[in-house]
């Protein structure tokens, strides 16, 4: 059987690359850490892979704005190979800083299948004005077209760790499109998934949005870190949970879904 291969893109300031690779590996994919300089020098190497992951971190210090400089670098140096990659039906995931990069390139949400990709939303400074590390509950949008989340339960528990995670769509039209097009994947919620608790939205995101996908459902971007919950030991309260819950971490499902999706296409 052919093996799914994932390219984990890294550059100065990437720092969740190893645990993201670990998550893909235990999901059955091969995972290579590739520096952007290597990829720019050898653009066709992207074709050998089935999944592209842009992991968390502070690429180039998040100077100017989070993810901005890497987004710019990709846009001006790798736009064609990336567009080709996506048009071939392959998968992309951007986690935290990776999400910021995809949004600032315009690859997300990319609400319509347009020729010229434009920036339609942003991720900006949290309302608190500071970085926050916290475990949050996410409500999966059941009608979402995202192929990365198919087997997830409705409420998912994952950590966030960011200063610039406040999702803002360019205008009401974009937000409506996102809803109508089933591109909203995760919203921040309370532990019951009922949005009843006060203050469950950790950053002021519009419509409590925590993760979105593109119009194909194959590009996923999310602020929470699924790679930090691939083992039950990473759950902050594993010692308080029932024995039956002590299995793999729920974040792993996301990686498994992605790998499974690609395996079926091989």
């Amino acid at each position: 059987m052919k093996k799914v291969r994932t390219l984990i893109l890294r550059t100065g300031g990437t720092n969740c690359d190893k645990e993201t690779a670990h998550a893909f590996e235990i999901s059955g994919s091969g995972a290579d850490l590739v520096h952007i300089n290597t990829l720019i020098r050898n653009k066709s190497m992207l074709d050998k892979y089935h999944i592209l992951a842009i992991p968390g971190g502070f690429t180039y210090g998040d100077d100017i704005a989070s993810g901005k400089i890497l987004a710019n670098e990709l846009k001006f140096n790798l736009k064609q190979p990336l567009t080709r990659f996506i048009s071939k039906g392959k998968l992309v995931i951007g986690i935290c800083n990776g999400f910021q990069v995809l949004v600032k390139m315009g690859f997300l949400p990319n609400i319509e299948n347009k020729k010229s990709i434009d920036v339609e939303s942003t991720l900006s400074l949290n309302d608190s004005g500071k970085f926050i590390d916290k475990w949050v509950y996410l409500k999966k949008s059941l009608e979402s077209k995202c192929c990365w989340t198919k087997t997830l339960p409705e409420v998912v528990y994952l950590p966030i760790a960011h200063a610039e995670g406040k999702f803002i769509p360019k205008n009401k039209k974009v937000l409506k499109f996102l809803n109508d097009n089933k591109q909203i994947v995760f919203r921040y919620t309370d532990r019951l998934g009922k949005d009843e608790e006060k203050g469950f939205n950790p950053n002021g995101s519009v419509d409590h949005i925590a993760g979105i996908c593109d119009h194909t459902g194959r590009i996923l971007g999310m602020m929470p870190h699924p790679e930090r919950h691939v083992s039950y030991l990473q759950h902050p309260n594993w010692r308080r949970r029932k024995k039956s819950d002590k299995e793999l971490g729920i974040g792993l499902e996301i990686f498994k879904n992605g790998v499974e999706y690609m395996r079926n296409k091989l």
Partner: peptide, 23 residues
């Protein structure tokens, strides 16, 4: 203070600085 530090990166933290029912 604690929440402004990333205590989860690298994925190794199995007893975190904030604990209990409500973390």
């Amino acid at each position: 203070i604690i929440r402004q530090y990333d205590h989860e990166v690298q994925g190794g933290s199995v007893l975190k600085p904030l604990i209990g029912e409500d973390n």
